[in-house]
Design a protein around this nucleic acid. Sequence first.
DNA 1: TTATTATTTTTGGCTAACCAAAAAATTAAT
DNA 2: ATTAATTTTTTGGTTAGCCAAAAATAATAA
Lengths: 218, 218
Amino acid sequence: MQSETIENYLKTIYHLSAGNSTIVNNKQLADKLKVIPATVTEAVKKLHELKLVIYEKSYGTRLTSSGSKMALNIVRRHRIWETYLANELGFGWDEVHEIAEELEHIKNDKLIKKLSEKLGNPSFDPHGDPIPDEKGKIQKSNFIKLSEAKLKNSYKIMGVTDHSTAFLKYLEKHQLIIGASINIKTIEEFDNSITLICQKKEVSISPKAAESIIAETL
Amino acid sequence: MQSETIENYLKTIYHLSAGNSTIVNNKQLADKLKVIPATVTEAVKKLHELKLVIYEKSYGTRLTSSGSKMALNIVRRHRIWETYLANELGFGWDEVHEIAEELEHIKNDKLIKKLSEKLGNPSFDPHGDPIPDEKGKIQKSNFIKLSEAKLKNSYKIMGVTDHSTAFLKYLEKHQLIIGASINIKTIEEFDNSITLICQKKEVSISPKAAESIIAETL
DNA sequence: TTATTATTTTTGGCTAACCAAAAAATTAAT
DNA sequence: ATTAATTTTTTGGTTAGCCAAAAATAATAA
């Protein structure tokens, strides 16, 4: 098996199993990897041979510890590159994912180390997603996208992932300031729009906006 | 044909034909690409179909103008990355080639543009090799490696490609200072060692040293 | 529990890129 | 101009990664 193929499978399994080695099935993988399930069957068999996953016929697949280690490393490379592209080269956050999908496959530990150092060895990318360290250790954060916020909880607005002027104007208009504390009042059932209290005022924001706001759980 | 395969063939043909569309033969290509000649035969036929090269049976292959354009672009990407790795990330000049071999295949014009800008849009890499611009135009330089120097000619020492302390000490000992003007007195037939006049003193240097010194033709 | 639906696996087939060995063509040497 | 050496091409075969369609299995609903 080609190393890039392996990496793409492991990474996808990792994401689908949400880090906690939940079993993933072939259809999920096929959808994400844009291949048909038959192809996945073949692949996971080979990955099982390589002891990177445990594949049980007609049941599902999960990462072994060495598969997980490898997946974590790919995630690290991906997020370091994304952060680098955004912070050092001035790419928009919407552009970096696609480029990082390619860059993540360049396996040169020293390169990732240098990039990481230049960035100050961050533990989180601008999305708020954690960057695994060299050993694969993930620092768990209390950062979330506002779209994942829970009713009644309090948060502090920490940043945004959309830097368009349109969005920044939107925030200004609604008086959503970075650093402000907020409390979730309602989450609409039918469209997931959120009503929150910010600086004593009640503000309602769209799900799209909530998706672009990073907040810290208080 | 896979784009990476195409790129590797075009780049290799470009280098072997020294930029001036000299005909290259299959064995040369096979050697450089680490495949057997039969594989090259197959490949150049396909590249001919794609109108990227002109392949004449049992005779040889040369780039078409669109093939050449593509090759120049790959060379550009390679050298931009090399320069970036060396100048911005602090890699040694001996390390960058290998990494750039992978990075050069990431096709994202904006990425190369940003890297180039950050470097001040250089026309030459630290080797003294020219970096083609976006349109493929190459600025021809009067920089050479001292190992390519010609008898009786005068040069100015512009830099080195080996930054080891051992080499820098060697230069110091022989009083070869950056910026100094030199004149080539003799080039030994049997071992290519060079005797030159520098600051009125006669200095003899090894071919290995000459390989690491960049000089400007005066 | 049987039928229906969905998922998974098997089977047969394809293409790209490679190699080994044989055959053909070219080039060099006597 | 023949022979010898080299290079090139052809032929047959391999592996990785993919797909389509059929068969097997599992899950869901009636």
